[in-house]
Amino acid sequence: MIQLLFMVVMAEMAGILILLFKTPLRKLLIMTLDRVKRGKAPIIVKSVAATVFVIMMYTIYTIRDIQSRPIDALNPTDHVLLANHMLEASLMGFSLFLSLMIDRLHHYIRELRLLRKTMEAAKKQNRGFEDGKNGGDEVKARGEEISGMEAKIRKLESEREAKEKEVKAAEANSVALKNQSEGFLLEYDRLLEENQNLRNQLQSIDQSLSHSDGKKNT
């Protein structure tokens, strides 16, 4: 019994040392404890712990019973039994205490891991929010740039429309000048034709006058 308790205590102390330092064995032990705490295993562990506690209390009762006897009534066997029971009770109590320490360490390590994951998720979310904010600023800047470009485009379109109006007005003026020049040319042709007609009439009158004068002279 004492050898078994010594082995249990040594194993529990080794487990505590493994949990205290970050090593590959720590991860393996944590995974083992996670599996132990699933299903019916916690009930079995609690039953074993309760049994050990009951045995420890019975051993303490036996120790108290032996110590309550008169010293003269104790024989060497009683002294050996007293020492044996005291050692067993101490080992069982120490074993239960170490078991509780392992359970609490495992619980705190798991909570710490969850807290770290939560903090990492919060940091990622914060980074995403900051990136989104920076992206929003960039989008805002892009929007302002697009608005400025649209204003420039509207200004250029208005200038283009004004130029088109000027071109149309110039074309209209050129058409009017062309029509006017064509009218002048037609009028000039008409005047030339009238002038030619007048000349022809004058020539015919001169010829008729000269012909009549010739007849008078004869």
Rank of each mutant, 00 (worst) to 15 (best):
L156P: 04
S95C: 03
D189Y: 10
M86N: 05
A122R: 07
V54E: 15
L33Y: 00
A121C: 05
Y61C: 03
Q201P: 05
E157A: 03
E171Q: 13
S147M: 13
L112C: 09
A14H: 04
N84K: 14
R26T: 00
V8P: 01
A49C: 01
D206A: 04
M57S: 11
P42Q: 01
R160L: 03
D72M: 10
N179I: 04
K215H: 00
A141H: 13
I102H: 09
G143S: 05
V167I: 13
Q3N: 06
G214F: 11
A176R: 14
I18G: 01
E138R: 12
E111L: 10
V139R: 03
N179L: 09
L112M: 12
N134Q: 08
N179W: 04
Y188M: 13
R35Q: 11
I30C: 07
Q207H: 08
I153P: 07
V175L: 13
N84C: 09
E182L: 07
I63Y: 02
L82T: 00
G15H: 14
K117N: 12
V52K: 11
F184W: 09
N200F: 07
G93I: 05
M7A: 14
S210A: 02
F97C: 12
M56L: 12
A41D: 11
I205D: 08
Q3R: 01
S212V: 13
L4C: 04
P70D: 15
M56P: 06
L198A: 05
D78G: 02
F6D: 04
I153T: 05
L114E: 13
Y61L: 03
T77H: 06
Y188V: 06
R113S: 02
K163L: 12
I16K: 01
L82R: 00
M92L: 13
A162V: 03
R190M: 07
E12C: 06
